[in-house]
């Protein structure tokens, strides 16, 4: 499998919403490729007929009674918010001129 190029790394960083410096992008390119080399080992195994494991204990859906229980008070939640007003969390603008909408 070909390694990650610099623009691949930039693309993944964008998908992950990580703002990385040029130095970080350069370092990560080398490190990620080194780690991805380890992954190639898995290709040795024929897994065509093997079912994937997402979790290891045999749990079935567990239903509970649909009873109303108290939620956390709004003021307790807002205390952790970087910006709040009128009982709401204030978010930075989603649409702005600079980001082009």
């Amino acid at each position: 499998m070909p390694g990650l190029s610099r623009s691949d790394v930039e693309h993944v960083a964008h998908l992950a919403r990580l703002g990385l410096t040029d130095d970080e992008l350069g370092r990560l390119q080398g490190q990620l490729n080194h780690i991805l080399d380890q992954y190639t080992k898995l290709a040795e195994l024929d897994t065509d007929s093997i079912a994937p494991t997402a979790q290891t204990i045999e749990l079935e859906n567990i239903l509970r009674e649909d009873v109303v229980t108290p939620s956390l008070p709004v003021e307790e939640i807002l205390r952790n918010a970087p910006d709040a007003a009128g009982g709401y969390i204030v978010s930075p603008p989603i649409l702005s001129d600079e980001s082009g909408g």
Binding site: N80, A81, P82, S99
Partner: peptide
């Protein structure tokens, strides 16, 4: 957005 430090404020993507 909801908790912890917010380090960029001009728009939501820059904040992320």
């Amino acid at each position: 957005v909801r908790f912890g430090p917010r380090l960029g404020d001009s728009d939501v993507l820059r904040n992320y």
